[in-house]
Design a protein around this nucleic acid. Sequence first.
DNA 1: AGGTATTGTTCGTGTTACTAACTAAAATAG
DNA 2: CTATTTTAGTTAGTAACACGAACAATACCT
Lengths: 152, 152
Amino acid sequence: MTDSSPENAPAPDLVDGLMQLSFVVQAILGRLAGEHGLSVTQLRMLAVLDDREIGMRQLAGILELEKSSVTGLVDRAERRGLVRRNAVPGNRRAVHVTDTEDGRAVVRLVREAIRAEIGQLAGTLSDSRQDSFRRSMAALIRHYVAEHDIPL
Amino acid sequence: MTDSSPENAPAPDLVDGLMQLSFVVQAILGRLAGEHGLSVTQLRMLAVLDDREIGMRQLAGILELEKSSVTGLVDRAERRGLVRRNAVPGNRRAVHVTDTEDGRAVVRLVREAIRAEIGQLAGTLSDSRQDSFRRSMAALIRHYVAEHDIPL
DNA sequence: AGGTATTGTTCGTGTTACTAACTAAAATAG
DNA sequence: CTATTTTAGTTAGTAACACGAACAATACCT
């Protein structure tokens, strides 16, 4: 529809580009995570948990999920030994989630795979373009996070 | 981990930026689609169907899903009157999927909402940055589509 | 015609995510 | 110091989504 030329690249506008790019990245993440037995959400959770210890509520906030969804998410990850629920000293109803050594190991592998594949894709851009691109992304992310008060 | 300064922006690298950005965009798509009773996948399917008529197999190829997943996807969308299965004249086993007037209408609404929200986000970038950003995205998408022979 | 490839569906399974209702503990009010 | 309210997390029930394996039906090929 927005395509005036029949066979060369459709040249999507900025909004379409962002949507398509997000699908591309998600497809890559899904495939690579899947190759290591993880779902995208689990990968994301483990990435969030990376070297910090947070409660279910905060985890839900960061992942933009309901608490109950996080319960299931952590249940399954815990069953696979990727994550642990720890009691919180001064608070008997709170729970702190941490990643296990196994969890960290898997994430490390997937991260490397992602870094290799997405890095290769991004490597097709010139260095100056990469830098400009990176800055623009950072700006967009910052705006979104600020406006939706995601507790990163 | 890659964060050396405690309170100012973490300044993610290109790969992390792409991942985070994809989550941001997906979150926006999910919310806006949801507000109109659609899932992200359904929105995507309807967007693909926009003014064209394709078989289940091709649809699966474009969405990067298994055929059986698409069967269910189309089933549910058809039940809601968003989509129709049409017989193909010269081929009695093939099916062509098309969007209905309702489907097109919903997609139009969601598209406008997305355009407004993502457009506003992107509007925080200067015009020249936007253009550079758009080009970089197009290049990445083109590379991905080419390397994974997605039949767009 | 007979075998093979292709198109799409069905069935069973597991994950993900939601809401509503619930328990238990903590915080606050009176 | 009890009584209420808020908060943290879980449970239960539902539905979408996605997969693989097995299947039916049709088309294609030689």
